[in-house]
Design a protein around this nucleic acid. Structure first.
Length: 132
DNA sequence: ATCGGAAAAT
DNA sequence: ATTTTCCGAT
């Protein structure tokens, strides 16, 4: 039946993407595992294994850990969703300018077609005082 | 801790 | 296409 697969996927969190999940926790001010830093778009993973556990629960992957989660984050580097803040432990930064450009068709449509579709559904985006 | 290749899974 | 899994190198 139509919707069955989607339902099952949703029930085990199959549809959600990692960076959506991160923005969700950050927007909610989840506090413990992950939080914004003082730099715009930058976040610090305060409890890597806890974050991995939460991510694993969402995805139905009981053996998720930070080693594997962080590999997924590194795949975001080339996709220009994230980059690492070098020298700051467990610290990454979102490419908000790119994200915003994709979401504001007013600007040239000629930039690297980087980002997905689901942005409007993210809990709190753009973050509190992001300068559009 | 962080990186990125390779292969498998979804 | 986006992870997940595994792992050797830095």
């Amino acid at each position: 039946r139509r919707g069955e697969r989607e339902r099952v996927e949703r029930d085990r969190g199959g549809g959600v993407q990692l960076w959506h999940f991160l923005l969700e926790l950050l927007g909610r001010g989840e506090g413990g595992a992950i939080g914004w830093s003082d730099q715009w778009g930058e976040f610090v993973i305060r409890d890597p294994e806890r974050l991995a556990q939460l991510w694993g629960e969402r995805k139905g992957k009981p053996h998720m850990n930070y080693d594997k989660l962080s590999r997924a984050l590194r795949y975001y580097y080339n996709k220009r969703i994230l980059h690492k803040t070098k020298g700051k432990r467990f610290t990454y930064k979102f490419n908000f300018s790119k994200l915003v450009l994709v979401n504001y068709p007013t600007v040239p449509h000629s930039l690297p077609p980087v980002l997905p579709h689901a942005l409007p559904h993210c809990a709190s985006f753009p973050p509190p005082s992001f300068p559009i």
